[in-house]
Design a protein around this nucleic acid. Structure first.
Length: 659
DNA sequence: ATAGGGTTAG
């Protein structure tokens, strides 16, 4: 079924022009030879009557300066002349020349030409001058659908979503019908907005328009719709649109797979990926599809499937594509195979900042803080400048490894050495770094002294640290702000309740739980995955649907009795309910990662490493149980929680109980 | 003449 393509056959993008530049040479090739033979100097041009053609020629030669010198001497420039001048301004990335061309165009009375208006709008859009684009649009009275589409596209690219909808309303009022291009631009405007108002409702309205006007078979419009719903996190809307598409292509499939991968549904992402391979002949996965699939493998710790995809990548010659290789490296690292990730990195013949960042965070999640810092420095000495994610990665690595001093120095170097101002995310990393290391007061002080208004991520980092070190007073302070900033985030309530429970403040636990119920919020259920023989099995906390978990649960009960004889003490204080001890122990045994571990013990060979991933942070009890099991069952167990890796072997965890 | 999906993070 797999077709072999050598690497040399893969298409490379043209190097000299920006990707958006329309470098069609259609007209160029039609030029008579005598013009091509002309030298583009002003002295030769004087004898030529047809200056129009000469200006056009100069534009195609990339000699915009000379062309602009000639322009005032040409009494009747044609549409084509101006089109080429405009394209040339884009190619030279010169707004000032663009404005000159625009002025001449107005003087020559061509400003009502809708074709040229379209070109001008897209020129200003490319040159990042949305105000000029808008001026052209406002002055154009003959607005063809091209003109409308151009302004929609320009506004969307500039992030002015709201303006798009004002104009779109006008267009509808004028009775101008949308075409398939209009829908894609206007849909994208829903997610391209600088304002915080949710434009999901707008997206749904346009969805209705599309169906009402018979565009449900337009692959582009429907694919955009899938993507827009995905970006709003509306996975079920996205998948129902996808499901009803009469025809799909590789982009539609990729959009849907990416939707699952990006919205914490990696299981479905891989399922769809498999379906894509099995059911479609003409839309086989390409590099973009592979990247999303790799992301899903990483999220699930599905190493076997990840290796399979690595094979596809090699066979299809996609191994020279940087983003693919970075995704591959990340997949291996996230599956606990740091060495394989390193190997991918070293085999890359070119590396960009993303490749370096991937390696930095790979060391980070494995707890190798010093190594991550070293790679960060190597990156700089190789002439690659760190970006904001490089700092998040390296600060995160310091945090996992408890490298407080080093982390603080790196944070300070952002401004002093790299002239980058820390964003909310960077402050959150710093707070996490200090808080995790039990320097909670200093963490709180960082928040006080921030030069931007502290947002939920920063307060959330503080709250997380309060959970680890059981600091009720500071937690309450963080929650006061968090409940204002993000009242719908159930996780904050749960953390606070956890802290109260640990402090045995049962009345407060009850109060927080009532708050959760009153606001109709639900805590995210704990969920763990394990891959056995290339199939991924998922376990939910208190899982009634999975027949496998009954067997796993029985094994756990047996193990826990044995472990108790050998010194295991159930960490019942973390149970949020005020129950009898025995009941609490039962609750603890129902945790999804324990079920997954037990399932792994039953269904894999003794020599196999058990690999598990979990959607939440690993709880203390599961951590100590897994340590016990690794010793008594003599098994290597790797668990990846939301934050990092835990390699359990012989009763010890690689995190050194610091996580 | 204009269009759709992707990489690194806590």
């Amino acid at each position: 079924m797999w077709v072999f393509f050598p690497a040399s056959q893969t298409l490379q993008p043209p190097s000299s022009f920006p990707a958006h530049f329309n470098y069609s040479t259609r007209n160029y090739q039609k030029l008579p030879i005598r013009f091509l033979a002309l030298k583009p100097s002003v002295s030769t041009t004087k004898g030529i009557g047809d200056k129009n053609k000469l200006i056009q020629y100069l534009c195609k030669q990339g000699n915009l300066k000379e062309a602009l010198k000639l322009l005032p001497h040409e009494p009747n420039p044609t549409q084509l002349t101006y089109e080429l001048l405009i394209l040339s301004c884009i190619r030279h990335d010169s707004l000032s020349d663009g404005l000159v061309v625009n002025r001449h165009l107005v003087d020559d009375g061509l400003d009502q030409d809708p074709f040229l208006a379209t070109k001008l709008i897209s020129m200003y859009s490319e040159l990042d001058s949305i105000d000029d684009a808008r001026k052209v649009f406002d002055k154009t009275t003959k607005r063809t659908i091209y003109v409308w589409n151009a302004i929609f596209r320009a506004l969307t690219l500039a992030g002015h979503g709201i303006e798009v909808f004002d104009l779109y309303r006008q267009m509808n009022r004028f009775g101008i019908p949308s075409d398939r291009f209009t829908y894609t631009f206007v849909l994208k405007a829903c997610v391209a907005s600088e304002c915080s108002v949710s434009l999901l409702q707008k997206g749904k309205e346009i969805h209705a328009h599309i169906l009402r006007h018979g565009f449900e078979a337009c692959v582009h419009a429907m694919t955009t719709l899938v993507d827009v719903y995905a970006r709003f996190g509306c996975v079920s809307y996205a998948s129902s649109v996808f499901g009803e598409m009469p025809t799909r292509n590789v982009v539609s499939w990729s959009a849907m797979i990416a939707c699952f991968a990006k919205n914490e549904r990696p299981f479905e992402a891989l399922e769809l990926f498999r379906e894509m391979i099995a059911e479609t002949d003409d839309s086989f996965p390409n590099s973009v599809t592979m990247i999303s699939a790799l992301q899903a493998c990483g999220a699930l710790v599905a190493l076997e499937q990840g290796k399979l995809i690595h094979g596809f990548i090699l066979r299809r010659g996609l191994d020279s594509i940087l983003p693919v290789m970075s995704a591959l490296l990340t997949m291996y690292a996230r599956c606990g195979k740091l060495k394989l990730g390193q190997r991918v990195f070293h085999q890359m013949d070119k590396r960009d900042v993303v490749s370096w960042n991937s390696l930095i965070s790979s060391y980070g999640i494995h707890g190798y803080g010093k190594k991550a810092i070293q790679v960060f420095k190597d990156m700089i000495s190789h002439g690659v400048s760190p970006n904001h994610i490089s700092f998040i990665s390296v600060l995160g690595a310091c945090s996992h490894a408890g490298l407080v001093l080093e982390g603080k120095m790196l944070f300070d170097s952002m401004v002093s050495e790299h002239r980058m101002y820390p964003s909310m995310e960077h402050y959150a990393c710093l707070v996490d770094l200090l808080g995790r290391a039990n320097q909670l007061d200093e963490a709180a002080k960082v928040i006080e002294d921030m030069r931007i208004e502290p947002g939920p991520k920063v307060w959330g980092a503080l709250l997380g640290s309060c959970r680890i070190h059981c600091n009720v007073e500071l937690a309450e302070r963080a929650c006061k702000r968090l409940f204002e900033l993000e009242p719908r985030n159930a996780g904050n309530y749960v953390l606070l309740a956890d802290i109260y429970a640990e402090a045995e403040m049962w009345d407060e636990v009850k109060r927080v739980k009532q708050l959760l119920e009153a606001r109709k919020l639900q805590k995210v259920p704990g969920c763990s995955w394990i891959e056995v023989r290339k199939k991924v099995y998922s376990f939910m906390c208190v899982d009634e649907f999975n027949p496998q978990s009954e067997q796993a649960h029985a094994l756990l009960v047996k193990l826990s009795t044995e472990m108790k004889d050998k010194g295991y003490v159930p960490q019942t204080h973390i149970v949020l309910y005020d129950l009898e001890e025995e009941e609490k122990e039962r609750v603890l045994l129902g945790h999804s990662e324990k079920l997954a571990v037990a399932f792994g013990l039953i269904n894999t060979k003794h020599s196999d490493t058990i690999r598990i991933s979990k959607n939440l942070r690993l709880c203390e009890d599961c951590h100590s149980v897994t340590k016990f099991i690794s010793k008594f069952a003599n098994r290597e167990i790797v668990v990846r929680d939301v934050n990092r890796f835990h390699h359990f072997q012989d009763g010890v965890c690689s995190c050194g109980d610091y996580w």
